[in-house]
Every structure is written in structure tokens, then in C-alpha cells.
Design a protein around this nucleic acid. Structure first.
Lengths: 107, 107
DNA sequence: CTTTTACATTCCCATATGGGCATGTGTCAA
DNA sequence: TTGACACATGCCCATATGGGAATGTAAAAG
């Protein structure tokens, strides 16, 4: 078996740095493919392919406006990632330090 | 170009479901390879390879104890993932609902 | 209808797996 | 030293890319 598909889940989809950039770019505002191509330094086909992956896994939504394809990040799709990583928060050193600080404040 | 290396960053490393399982398993307590093999249903070589990837990217630490190799999750390495995904929190529908609820409480 | 614009797909190919199996290595026991 | 035990690596192979280039397609313009 090889590596799992990028469209199998959000974790695989965001493994690509460029896809993370795209998600960051489309988080605040809807953008056309051309805007993304201009913002990142990628060829149009590459951007379209990445958007396809993100669309398949549900991390972006698409809308057609005339000749323009408008994309937007579906932030809810990233809750899975956030929740998973949050499980480890209590083991962070910073967290322990915070707990320690809190405990010292109690004295 | 193909997909980036699994050891290039935490995002690529956690793209594998089995590696996420391993990280969950080793988050609370240090464990030997044999324990992990028993806990997950994987062959020993597969587990060792996944641990190698996690070690290279810094998501686990290893220690030698006699014939046993003890591994433990380095939770700090997941802060990158957590922080990144947290950027999208303000766009969550649940978050908006919470803001709305909060606003209603203000009235 | 033809052309241009804005994307989406397809092809080709080098690269990076991840699993199964075999083998090498380090450590403790006899 | 020999043998068993616990892992780590190496090999082989099917699979899934991701980029570049070329091509297909939908929609507005002329």
C-alpha cells in the first residue's frame, strides 16, 4: 500500500503547504482562482488541482460567478484537526508552566 | 515533483492515521515498541517505521532501556498544528453561534 | 459564430511512500 | 560463545501524488 489519498481526510489534505496557504487565503474572503494564482506563486493548473482536493475533502466550497469560480474556506472542516491536536494540549510544556504559575499564584 | 516527505514537517507526519494512533497512545505514557504493536494491530516493522518518521520530525522521543526501546509523544511538536488550525476558529459556525449567544446575553 | 477569458482536466513522469518479508543489530540469558 | 528476544533496516512493489505542458470547456465579448 502507498500513502493514503489526499482526499481521504482533512489531515491528508493539509499535508501540502500550498493547500494550507490556499486555506489561509480563503478563510477571510471568497476569492477567484485567478486571485489565488496571483497571490501564491503557482501556475493556474496547480491551483485548480489543489482546490479540487480541498473541495473533495470539504475544506472549501465553490461557487460559479460568470466566468469566475469563487472559492471560500470551509473552516468547519478544520475542526477535526483542531480537536485532535487539542488532545495534546495538556502535555505541552507551556501548559505545564501555566499550571505551575497558577499553582504558585494559589499560595 | 511528488508529495513532500513525511519527515518534512508535523503536518505530513500526522497525515497517516496509524501515526496519529501511535501519538495518542504515547501521549500519556511511555511505551515500548512491543506494547504499541500489541495495542494497534500492526506488524513490528511497520510500527518501527512509523516511529522512525515521528522521531525524525520530532513528534516522539526515544530512550533505550535494555532490550526495549521506549517511546513517548513529544506533544510540543503538535503545537504547530494546533496553532495553525486555531487560526480558523473564528470562522467556525459554532463559534459564530457562540458569539451570537454572547451578544444576546448582552442585551 | 468566432475569439478571448477563466478555469478544469488529462498526460506524462520523477518521487515518496507504506506494507510484507527477510535480514541486520544490540542486549540479556545460559 | 551461542541462542533468544526486541527492534531497526533494507528490498521490492503497487499506489498516489504534484508539477509542467497541452488540451478541453463554459461564459462573456465582438
Amino acid at each position: 500500500m502507498a500513502r493514503a489519498s489526499t482526499t481521504s481526510d482533512p489531515f491528508n489534505a493539509i499535508a501540502e503547504p500550498r493547500r494550507r496557504h490556499i486555506l489561509e487565503l480563503l478563510a477571510a474572503e471568497e476569492r477567484s482562482v485567478g486571485d489565488i494564482v496571483a497571490a501564491l506563486e503557482l501556475n493556474q493548473p496547480s491551483v485548480s488541482k489543489h482546490l479540487r482536493v480541498l473541495l473533495d475533502v470539504g475544506l472549501v466550497s465553490a461557487r460559479r460567478e460568470g466566468r469566475h469560480a469563487m472559492y471560500r474556506t470551509n473552516a468547519d472542516g478544520l475542526r477535526t484537526v483542531h480537536d485532535w491536536s487539542a488532545m495534546f494540549a495538556k502535555y505541552w510544556r507551556g501548559q505545564l508552566r501555566r499550571i505551575k504559575t497558577h499553582a504558585e499564584g494559589q499560595q
